[in-house]
């Protein structure tokens, strides 16, 4: 798409699994592109739709919502609740005209540093193909 376009990604990661997986990717010195900024939440089920919508409104190109696998949850069933939030969000994003691939939902366990790096790599690639978020242009025009 755009030459030199570097997508901006925000990742909401649960404290117990995916945040720890990102730490593990670090301690294992696995390299992945610097396009992602992680926001720590206690549980993926804590991610409020408003956080995702505000981030898109602010112009980010992609969002990752990631936490424990269904069976690893520190709070019993957080991932189920997170899935519900994400499914509802997908409908809203559809109406807003945002491509499905801009919101990614993953379960990454504390031991899966490799998977975390892989997910970020894939997202950056996917988002490069999609180009900047249509909201980015709007936000910039308003500014």
């Amino acid at each position: 798409m755009m030459a030199g376009f570097e997508p901006q990604i925000i990742a909401f990661c649960c404290n117990w699994c995916t945040y720890a997986a990102a730490d593990l990717a670090g301690t294992s010195r696995m390299h992945y592109p610097p396009n992602v900024r992680i926001v720590r939440v206690m549980c993926s089920g804590m991610v409020d739709p408003i956080y995702v919508l505000k981030a898109f409104e602010g112009g980010v190109d992609g969002i990752l919502v990631a936490g424990c696998h269904l069976t690893d949850c520190h709070y019993i069933d957080g991932p189920v609740k997170c899935d519900e939030t994400v499914n509802k969000l997908r409908e809203v994003l559809h109406v807003l005209g945002l491509e499905d691939k801009r919101l990614r939902r993953e379960m990454v366990a504390a031991s899966e540093g490799v998977l975390f790096a892989q997910v970020i790599n894939e997202m950056v690639e996917d988002l490069k193909k999609l180009g900047p978020s249509p909201f980015k242009a709007k936000t910039e025009a308003l500014a």
């Binding site: 901006q8 925000i10 900024r37 926001v39 939440v41 409020d48 408003i50 956080y51 505000k54 981030a55 409104e57 602010g58 112009g59 980010v60």
Partner: peptide, 11 residues
Amino acid sequence: ILAQVSALTEA
């Protein structure tokens, strides 16, 4: 959390 998110979108 919103303060954190909006700070990140200020790139």
